[in-house]
Each structure stands twice: as structure tokens, then as C-alpha cells.
Design a protein around this nucleic acid. Structure first.
Length: 495
RNA sequence: GGCUCCAUGGUCAAGCGGUUAAGACACCGCCCUUUCACGGCGGUAACCCGGGUUCGAUUCCCGGUGGAGUCACCA
């Protein structure tokens, strides 16, 4: 007895971008392959030429690349050549295979030519809808004789699969056995009149020929699976194992619409989330490990632990709050250098002159924000004051720290502290502030928060001593003086 | 509408005939603290309904309800 090698695949149609749901399917396949020493294949389902575009192909692969999902076999992408022995990996390049297999089915009487026109069919469907009957193919061309076909001459025809009598069993790893009466299926078209294969034929031929052992995909394909099972049997291919996982729902509980922000996985990159967060979070949307209570997973852990047995049957809503939390966890796992590298482009983008700062300084800056920010993008409001002199002060902060009885005293005390320092360090600042607070009978908070407002214009941010240290002595003192002047003058006006 | 799938707190979820029904996020307190955040401690909050089966059902079966998916010469 030999254990068959695991071969699984993700087969997106490149019609836009990498959808979060496609990413989930890809991730599960990939993790499954990795945890079983199997092969993960990327196949592009671009049979419908009208709906594909090279830009879309690129955008989609970009999504995979960002997530770090790498395929063992797949089409050419960017500077990567096509990989694998079972190519080509684009359906548009496999037309001959489909025609050949379709012809075989026709020859064996398992499929037949249908001369009905699209218009005819549409009319029938409309009529059915009007009469509230389920829309079904009439079966008009099912039993055409040789003579009748001969009469048609070279009229265009589609090819329909002759659905057998009975019932089809989909023995699904996740859903369990699912039985569907064959009556529910029309004699569906497998080749269009223009000669192109329809999705159902293409997937089955590809899965068969590529020796796919496990078909893991969203359960929006569950009913399609019945058609596929029939096709596998008709073509004489061994049946793969099916695993239909639930879809990702939006926060309202619906299938995550393409139009929603976040449907594109790259939206999350845009919003400051780490790819490792997305991998972790998406994996959790329908899977749990044996180890109870653990939610934080690295990719390596997932590759080890992932099993189809632990997949959930019910759909999961996408929860932004939890994603934020998880992203914070992953940000904290980064090395400070790593965080710095990831954050630099964002700051540059915001127009800050980061390249004028020494690397060590930038790393320190990243370090004092690491525990604060839930998303990478938050680095901007947390550090903007380093690069831009604050214009004005937070309104609430002003009332709390500039307009109280002791405010001016606190600011002046803080300035004295700064002036009195022989060295400009976190420790010296801290010591000096603490001592002054005691001597002047000021709350340390008043001292610190007033200073924060003066230096940053805000009430929230990194630790004050750390931030002041990085801002530098001269700049800090300058900003204190400006603030003191501001409090004095505007205070006079208002009273 | 037909068919199919699903159903434990607001959300994600353990559970697999007998449990005080885990845990995480969110929320609310408290602690820590220079703010925010992190961290720590504690709290509110759930088995959709009705029938069976059983000594006993969140758990098994049936029905209902609710939600979702799918019904193309799209994939």
C-alpha cells in the first residue's frame, strides 16, 4: 500500500484581484500541501478570454506574492518561469486538451451536440421564470439522430454532457456525504459553440490530468461538485477527495462582496496590516488547532499544525477588531529593525524626511512605537512631530494642560529641567522631572503631559522621555519656549 | 421558488450523551502607568424553536425557523 502524494491546487480566474475568499482557499490548499509534504499548484482559469486581462493576472499573482503563498507548480509570472511537469498552467493554453476529451465523451455517447441557440435558450428560461417553473434545459437535442445532425450541416453547436439517471454522491471531507439527485442537474454545456470549454469541463480535465488528489475550495462550489463527480466518472479519471470549506462573510454576514473594501487582499497591505497577520487571521476563519486557546500563529507553526479535520463547517464573519488585535501581536513580534524597515516607506510616503535621519535614530523611533500601534499606518500620526513642527495644539489637551492654574508653572518648570541637564538622555530627563515635580509640588502628570503637548501638539504618543530624547535638546527647548509664549499671550487675550 | 450547506455569548470558536458549557476579540470595571498602548486581574454575556431516541440531550434523529450558497454557451 502506498500513500498517494498530496497534490492540491488553487484555481482562480484572473478577473480582477486576489479576493480574500480565494486567498482563504489558496491558504488552506497551501498549508495542507505543506503539512503533508505535498505539492501546491497554481492554475489560472482564464477560459473566458473576454474576462481576462494580463493586468488582472499580474494583480492576482501580486496578492499571492504579498501573502507569501508560493506555488510549486504554476504559470509564468514576472521573472518567474513556468514551473512543473503538468503544464501549461493556464486554461487558455489547454484548449486542445479540452476538445480532445470532449470529443471522446461525444464519441462514447456521454455527451452530445446541441444546436439550440443562445436566444432560444434565453427565451425558454424566461418563460420558465414567468411560469414559475425551475429553469431546465428542454432536452431538445438530447436524442438527435445521425440524419438530423447531418441536416444541420455546419451549423454551430455546443456540447452538452448527458447527465445519467440516479444520484450523485459527493463524499466531502468537511461537509460529510452530500447526495444530490441527478434530476437537479440539466444536461449542462461543457463546450461553447465557439469551441471553448466551459469551466466544469476544464476543471475536471485539468484536475484529472494534473493528478490532483485533493480539491479544497469554497462551498459555493459544493453543488458544482456533483457535476464534477459525474464528469470525473465519465472521463474515467480517479476521483479526488473533495473538501468544501465555508465562505468568508462580511460583517453583515454575507458573502464578502467584490465591491467591499478589503475584498482585495492588497487592501489590507494598503491599510497597514502585515501579511503574516492576514495569513494568521484568515487561517483562523474556519480552522482551529488542537491546542485550545492559542490564536497567534506563525506561518511555520501553521505549516506544521494545519489539518483538514479541524476545519469548521459554518461560515465566519470577518471581524476587523480582532484583526487589529492580531496585527498588533504580529507587529510586536517583529524585530525593531524589521519594524523600522516596514515603516520607513510609509513615512517617506507621508512626505517626511526620513532619509536625513541616521539609521540608529530611525530604529529607536520604531522601537518606541512598537507597543503602541495596531497597524503600520499608525506610525504616521505617532511620529509626525519628529518631522514636522506641530501647528497648534490638541484642543482638549490645551484645556487640560495649558489652561489650568498650574499650567504655566508646569511648563516653565519643565523648561528649567531641560535647561539644567548636563546630558540629554531618557534617564536624566526622567530623574530631573521627578525631582522637579517633588520640589515644586506638581503632579508628575501635569509636568509630563504639558511637555508632551508642547513638543508634539498631541495628548497621545510614545513615552515622553523617549520621544524628547529623540527629538533632541535644542528642538525640545525651542518648542517649550514657543508653547510658553503661546500660553502667556493667548491666555491674556482670553481673560 | 427548487436544490444544497450551516446554526454555542455581539464576533471567532472549544465541545463530540452526564461539564460550574473552555478560550480569544470586543465591551465594562480595577491594577500598572507620564498620555496612549501593552501587560495583569476580575466581570457582563451563549447552546434558535418544537417533537422524538435515551435514565439523561448543546451533543443523535425528524420537522420548523433563521442565515448562507447555488441554479448561465461566467468561473
Amino acid at each position: 500500500m502506498t500513500t498517494p502524494v498530496v497534490r492540491c491546487r488553487v484555481a482562480p480566474s484572473p478577473s480582477g484581484f486576489l479576493h480574500i475568499g480565494t486567498a482563504k482557499a489558496a491558504l488552506y490548499n497551501w498549508l495542507f500541501a505543506r503539512s503533508h509534504g505535498g505539492t501546491f499548484i497554481l492554475r489560472l482559469e482564464d477560459t473566458d478570454a473576454e474576462r481576462t486581462d494580463e493586468q488582472y493576472v499580474h494583480a492576482m499573482c501580486e496578492g499571492f506574492k504579498w501573502l507569501g503563498i508560493e506555488w510549486d507548480e504554476g504559470p509564468e509570472f514576472g521573472d518567474e518561469p513556468e514551473k512543473g511537469e503538468y503544464g501549461p498552467y493556464r486554461q487558455s493554453q489547454r484548449r486542445d486538451l479540452y476538445s480532445r476529451e470532449a470529443a471522446r465523451l461525444v464519441a462514447e455517447g456521454k455527451a452530445y451536440r446541441c444546436y439550440c441557440t443562445k436566444e432560444e435558450l434565453d427565451a425558454q428560461r424566461e418563460l420558465a421564470a414567468k411560469e414559475k417553473r425551475p429553469p431546465r434545459y428542454s432536452g431538445k437535442c438530447r436524442n438527435l439522430t445521425e440524419e438530423e445532425i447531418a441536416v444541420k450541416g455546419d451549423a454551430p453547436f455546443a456540447i452538452r454532457f448527458r447527465v445519467p439517471e440516479g444520484e450523485t454522491l459527493i463524499d466531502d471531507i468537511i461537509q460529510g456525504p452530500v447526495r444530490i439527485k441527478n434530476k437537479e442537474y440539466d444536461d449542462f454545456i461543457i463546450v461553447k459553440s465557439n469551441g471553448d470549454a466551459i469551466f466544469h469541463l476544464a476543471v475536471v480535465v485539468d484536475d484529472g490530468l494534473m493528478k490532483i488528489t485533493h480539491v479544497i475550495r469554497g462551498d459555493d462550489h459544493l453543488t458544482n461538485a456533483g457535476r464534477h463527480v459525474m464528469l470525473f466518472n465519465a472521463l474515467g479519471y480517479p476521483l479526488p477527495q473533495f473538501a468544501h470549506h465555508p465562505l468568508i462573510h462580511d460583517e453583515q454576514g454575507r458573502k464578502y462582496s467584490k465591491r467591499l473594501h478589503g475584498a482585495n487582499v492588497l487592501d489590507w497591505r494598503e491599510d497597514g496590516y502585515l501579511p503574516e497577520t492576514m495569513i494568521n487571521y484568515i487561517s483562523l476563519l474556519g480552522w482551529t488547532s488542537e491546542e485550545e486557546g492559542k490564536e497567534f500563529y506563525t506561518l511555520e507553526e501553521l505549516k506544521q499544525l494545519f489539518t483538514l479535520k479541524r476545519l469548521t463547517k459554518s461560515p465566519a464573519r470577518f471581524d476587523r477588531k480582532k484583526l487589529d488585535w492580531l496585527n498588533g501581536q504580529h507587529i510586536r513580534m517583529l524585530t525593531v529593525e524589521g519594524l523600522c524597515d516596514r515603516v520607513l516607506p510609509l513615512l517617506r510616503n507621508a512626505g517626511f524626511a526620513v532619509d536625513e535621519k541616521p539609521r540608529e535614530w530611525l530604529i529607536e523611533m520604531a522601537a518606541i512605537c512598537q507597543e503602541k500601534i495596531p497597524t503600520l499606518n499608525q506610525i504616521v500620526p505617532y511620529t509626525d512631530f519628529f518631522f514636522v513642527t506641530p501647528e497648534g495644539y490638541d484642543e482638549k489637551g490645551e484645556r487640560k494642560f495649558f489652561r489650568k492654574e498650574n499650567s504655566l508653572k508646569a511648563l516653565e518648570t519643565a523648561l528649567q529641567c531641560m535647561n539644567g541637564l548636563s546630558e540629554w538622555t531618557v534617564e536624566s530627563l526622567k530623574a530631573s522631572y521627578e525631582q522637579a515635580a517633588q520640589e515644586k509640588e506638581l503632579k508628575i502628570g501635569a509636568l509630563v503631559n504639558g511637555t508632551r503637548l508642547a513638543l508634539t501638539g498631541k495628548t497621545v504618543g510614545p513615552g515622553l522621555y523617549e520621544l524628547a530624547k529623540l527629538l533632541g535638546r535644542e528642538e525640545s527647548i525651542g518648542r517649550m519656549q514657543v508653547a510658553i509664549e503661546y500660553v502667556k499671550t493667548s491666555g491674556e487675550e482670553s481673560s
